[in-house]
């Protein structure tokens, strides 16, 4: 009982940290090019990058379309990303686990 509760405590603490990092902390992240972008510029192949087909996404570049404040826009994008990732990855692993419980599963 208390083991389950402490597991839920850890889970909620982890989720809170993720939401805070994505929603608030990300504002303070470095805006410099990352290692690959930097190396591409240094060695002269950055110009071959093309816009992604998803570049028109309302969340492109971690900003929410129509939200004026950059800080709010970035934070909201982060929170949405955490929620979507949680639902997709959580749903997928729950499905895999359920399937794995059936004895006809791929032995192991």
């Amino acid at each position: 009982m208390s083991a389950r509760r402490s597991r839920r405590g850890l889970w909620l603490a982890g989720l809170l940290v993720a939401l805070l990092v994505a929603g608030v902390g990300s504002w303070y992240a470095s805006g410099s090019p990352d290692g690959l972008e930097w190396a591409a510029e240094e060695t002269g192949f950055s110009h071959t990058a093309e816009d992604s087909a998803a570049a028109d996404s309302p969340l492109a570049e971690y900003a929410v379309d129509g939200v004026g404040s950059e800080r709010l826009s970035g934070g909201l994008a982060g929170v949405i990303g955490v929620a979507v990732t949680l639902v997709l990855a959580g749903g997928l692993t729950m499905l895999v686990r359920r399937r794995g419980r059936e004895p006809a599963g791929t032995g192991g």
């Binding site: 597991r7 889970w11 982890g14 989720l15 940290v17 993720a18 939401l19 990092v21 994505a22 902390g25 990300s26 303070y28 992240a29 470095s30 805006g31 410099s32 090019p33 990352d34 290692g35 930097w38 971690y62 982060g78 990303g81 955490v82 929620a83 990732t85 949680l86 639902v87 997709l88 990855a89 959580g90 749903g91 997928l92 692993t93 729950m94 686990r97």
Partner: peptide, 26 residues
């Protein structure tokens, strides 16, 4: 199983936190 989804969400969040590496790179 419940931890896996959280771990993915956590990785997504922390991947947003670019840290500076040397001059002009993160």
């Amino acid at each position: 199983a419940p931890l896996a989804g959280l771990t993915a969400a956590f990785v997504f969040a922390v991947q947003m936190m670019n840290f500076p590496v040397g001059a002009g790179t993160s």
